[in-house]
């Protein structure tokens, strides 16, 4: 508890630790790559260097967050976890569905899942929006720009 009281910027501490973790992970992954010589740097040279640099910068950020007093430092604030997960899920659903099942199914999945992310869920609005977006995107991307999308599942051809 006493440590917590001394943290002036939880944002900086968390960010700093994140940078340290990414830096270390980079170095670990890159240690397997050839380092090369001074005349011919290998592919591993820069990643290791940068990983170390990132870890050091991260440590500095974290230490500053603990030690340096900043007036009205911002708290991290509440995380919008539900929107975060659902928006990511909607995008991933589109990615997985668009090739096997076509643009229509993928669009509907995206609209339904993302609409669950925030505000009131209205079935009527979701249906209307899905229809409008399928029509609009088919008109722009398939018929005007000629992108190679299937509108319907491949089996229907």
């Amino acid at each position: 508890m006493s440590l917590r009281a001394r943290i002036h910027s939880p944002q900086d501490v968390a960010a700093g630790l994140l940078f340290v973790a990414i830096g270390i992970a980079t170095v670990v992954a890159a240690l397997d790559y050839p380092m090369g010589t001074v005349r011919r740097f290998g592919p591993g040279y820069f990643p290791v260097l940068l990983g170390v640099l990132l870890a050091l910068l991260g440590a500095a950020v974290a230490i500053k967050g603990i030690a340096v007093r900043i007036e009205d430092a911002e708290p991290i604030g509440p995380w919008a976890l539900r929107p975060l997960i659902l928006i990511a899920a909607a995008v991933i659903a589109f990615a997985l569905l668009v090739r096997p099942l076509g643009l229509t199914v993928a669009t509907v999945a995206l609209v339904v899942i993302s609409s669950l992310a925030g505000g009131r869920f209205s079935l009527k609005r979701v249906i209307a929006l899905s229809v409008a977006l399928v029509a609009l995107s088919a008109a722009i991307f398939i018929f005007t720009l000629g992108l190679p999308f299937n509108l319907w599942p491949a089996l229907w051809n």
Binding site: L103, V111, S114, G118, L129, L133
Partner: peptide, 15 residues
């Protein structure tokens, strides 16, 4: 309304 805007943005981003 954002409820209509954001799914549309998402779709255009995905495409």
């Amino acid at each position: 309304p954002y409820q209509i805007l954001f799914p549309s943005i998402l779709l255009f981003v995905c495409i």
